[in-house]
Design a protein around this nucleic acid. Structure first.
Lengths: 347, 347
DNA sequence: TAACATTATGTAATCGATTACATTTACACA
DNA sequence: TGTGTAAATGTAATCGATTACATAATGTTA
C-alpha cells in the first residue's frame, strides 16, 4: 500500500476515470470512448456516462493521457529575454495561434545568457514538449548536444538561425538596413554612426552588414562610420551617446540596431543640447509601440511582430503534424516608418 | 500490438529505463535507484548502470515520472497581457526564482479577456500544474467553477486579489496614489485629471481611490477632478489628451494609472503646443524602463517589478511545499520617483 | 428460426518510471 | 559451521487514460 488515494493532493487528482466508470456502471473503456468518440457508444450509455462525469466533476488527467499518447501538447518558446518589448508582442502572436490547436506555451527565458540553454535542452530531451519555437537566433545547446539533434520539431522566428533546417519566419534585416542607409543618403548625410546589438547575434550581423553595404553603395567607406558596441537594450544608447558627445566632428546620422537604444540615444544627446533631427538624425529597428510616443517620433524599421509570432507558430504546428512546410523560409515585409527623428543633414 | 516503439516519435521517447536495465543487466528498479539514491546501490552496480545510461543517452520520461509522483513541476502564471512592459519584468523575477527549484513556467495570457480564463481553469483542473501565480488581480473562473475551488496552491502578485486566501505580494497602490496627490498639492495644483485603468481592476480601484483620498485631504473635491476612462495602454493617454485639449480650464496636474498612458498623454499634448511641466504636470505609475528616456523624464510611482515576481514566486513555492507562509501579505515599497514631468502649478 | 453481420461493451495490455515488499546475498559472530 | 543481521537487488503493483482484441448483445436475412 502506498497511501490513500483520496488524501494529500489537491482535488484535480481525486476523481479518476475509474470513479466515473463505477458510478455509471460501465467499464473505463466505455467512459473513455464516450468522451473521445461519442458516436460509438449507445445513446443510453452515453447519457449515463455523461451524467456521471457531470456529477463527479471529472477531468482527464493529462499526465496519464500524455504518457499514453506520447505527446504533451506543450510548446517550448525560447526567448532571449522575456522583458523585451519586442519579444512580448511576438509571444502574443505565437500564443494566439497555439491556442487554436490546443497547445500551451512554456517560456524558456535565456536572459541573454548562453548557459541557460542547457536547461531547455534537458526539458526537450525528457520529452516534455512537442515542439520548439526559437526566437533567439541560435540553436540551444549544452556543450555536447544541440537541440537540433534531438529530433523535436522546431521553427524559428525573428531571426534566421544558422545551421537550422527548419521553417523560418523573419524579416529581411539586411535589406531593411540597406534601406536605412539609403534613407540617410537621400537626406545628404555623409558621416554615420551605428549602435550595435550583441556581438555575434545573427540579427545584429545582418543589420550591420546591410547598413555598411547600403553606405558602400552610396560611396561611403569605413572611416565615415562610427561603430558603438552594445546590446538590444536602453543602456546601449546611453553609452553610445556619451561617446558621441565627445566627438569633434560627430556623425549626423545614427542607426541603432534596436528602438530602445535609439530612444535612449536621442534622450541623452537632446539633454546635452543637441537637436534631433536638425543636428543628428536617428533611426531605430523593431517598431515597438512606444517609438511613436517619444519626441521626436522615432523613424524605425517596423517588424510585424505579432504576425511573425503567428506565422511562425503556424509553421511549427505543421511541422509537428508531419506536414511538409511548403515555404520553409518566409520573409515578411519590414517597412521603414518615417518619423520625425530623421531629416536632412545639417548644412 | 500497437505499432513499433522505435518508429514514429522523435528520439527522446526512444530510450527507456528498460533499455538501460537490459544493457546493464539489472532490473529497472536498480536503475531508478542508481539515479535517485546512488548510495543504496553497490559501487560496482552503480558503475555499470551509469555506463549504460551514458552509452544509451537515457533521460527519464517526465510524463511517466509525473504520473507516478502526481506532480508536474510546472507553474501556471496568469498574466493580463504578455505584451505589457510592466508584466515582462515581473515574469523575469518569477522565472529566476522558479528555476532554482526546478520548476518551469507556463504562461496563461488573458489578453485582457475574461473569457480566456476558462482555458486555464481547465488546465489546472486536469492536474497539469503544481501551482498558480496570479498577476491579473482576479481569480480566474469559467462561469461555475473558480480556480480557487480547485485546491491548487496559489499566490498573487502585483494586485491584491479579492476573495483569495493565498499569499499576496503587492505594493500599496492606494498609499502611493495618496502620495501622488500630495506631490501635486505641494506644487500648488488645484485642478486635476486622472487617466484610469480598466474599470473594475483592483489596482485601478485602489489607485483612483487613493488619489481621490489624497486630494480630499488637501481640500479638493470631485468637481476639480476630471476622470478619463481607459486601460493600461498607450491608447488611454491619447484619448485623454484629446479630450484634455478641448477643455476651457484644463487640469494642471494629471495622474495616469500606468506609465504608457502618461507617456502618450505627454506626447500628444506637447505636440499640440502645451508644455510639460510648465502648463501641465504628469505623473505615471509602474516605473517602466523607458519612462526614464522620454522627454521630459516621467515622474512615476516605481514598482519593484522584478522583486514582486521573485518574492511572489518564493511564497508560491512555500505554499506548494505545504509550509506555512509566515507573511501572507507582503507589501513592497513603491516610491514616487521625481522626474521632470511634474512641477509647480502655472501661475 | 438458424446463421451471420453489426453494434456495443468489457478485458487487459500499454505508455515509462517509481517504490513497497519480497527475496537473495554477504558478512559478522558465536 | 550455523544463525542472525544488514546490505543489495529483484518482482510486481501503481499512477490514470487509451485502445487492440475478445466477447456479448442486437439486428438482419434467407
Amino acid at each position: 500500500m502506498e497511501g490513500n488515494r483520496r488524501s494529500a493532493r489537491h482535488s484535480p487528482g481525486n476523481v479518476t476515470i475509474q470513479d466515473v466508470a463505477a458510478r455509471a456502471g460501465v467499464s473505463t473503456a466505455t467512459v473513455s470512448r464516450t468522451l473521445a468518440n461519442p458516436e460509438v457508444v449507445s445513446a443510453t450509455t452515453r447519457e449515463r456516462v455523461l451524467r456521471a462525469v457531470e456529477a463527479t466533476g471529472y477531468t482527464p488527467n493529462v499526465a496519464a493521457r500524455n504518457l499514453r499518447a506520447r505527446r504533451s501538447m506543450m510548446i517550448l518558446v525560447i526567448v532571449p529575454n522575456v522583458a523585451s518589448p519586442f519579444i512580448a508582442e511576438v509571444l502574443r502572436g505565437i500564443d494566439d495561434e497555439l491556442v487554436l490547436s490546443g497547445y500551451d506555451m512554456i517560456i524558456g527565458n535565456l536572459d541573454n545568457l548562453v548557459e541557460r540553454e542547457a536547461r531547455y535542452v534537458k526539458l526537450v530531451q525528457s520529452g516534455q514538449v512537442d515542439g520548439v519555437m526559437i526566437t533567439s537566433g541560435r540553436i540551444p545547446g549544452d556543450g555536447d548536444r544541440s537541440m537540433a539533434d534531438l529530433g523535436v520539431p522546431m521553427a524559428a522566428v525573428c531571426a534566421a538561425v544558422p545551421g537550422l533546417t527548419a521553417p523560418h519566419v523573419t524579416v529581411d534585416d539586411r535589406q531593411a538596413s540597406i534601406d536605412v542607409a539609403t534613407h540617410f543618403l537621400e537626406f545628404g548625410h555623409r558621416r554615420f554612426g551605428y549602435i550595435s546589438g550583441p556581438a555575434g547575434n545573427v540579427n545584429e550581423i545582418d543589420r550591420y552588414d546591410g547598413f555598411k553595404e547600403g553606405l558602400r553603395q552610396g560611396g561611403v567607406g569605413a572611416k565615415d562610420l562610427t561603430y558603438w558596441p552594445g546590446h538590444f537594450n536602453l543602456r546601449a544608447g546611453v553609452d553610445a551617446a556619451e561617446d558621441f558627445l565627445t566627438l569633434e566632428a560627430p556623425p549626423t546620422a545614427i542607426y541603432a540596431a534596436c528602438d530602445e537604444a535609439a530612444i535612449s540615444f536621442m534622450k541623452t544627446v537632446i539633454s546635452a543640447g543637441r537637436r534631433v533631427p536638425e543636428d543628428v538624425s536617428v533611426v531605430g529597428f523593431d517598431g515597438i509601440d512606444v517609438a511613436r510616443f517619444v519626441r521626436p517620433t522615432l523613424t524605425t524599421v517596423h517588424q510585424p511582430r505579432y504576425e511573425l509570432g503567428r506565422t511562425g507558430a503556424q509553421a511549427l504546428l505543421k511541422a509537428i503534424a508531419g506536414l511538409e512546410v511548403e515555404e520553409p523560409v518566409v520573409r515578411l515585409a519590414a517597412p521603414l516608418i518615417q518619423g520625425a527623428s530623421s531629416g536632412p543633414a545639417p548644412v
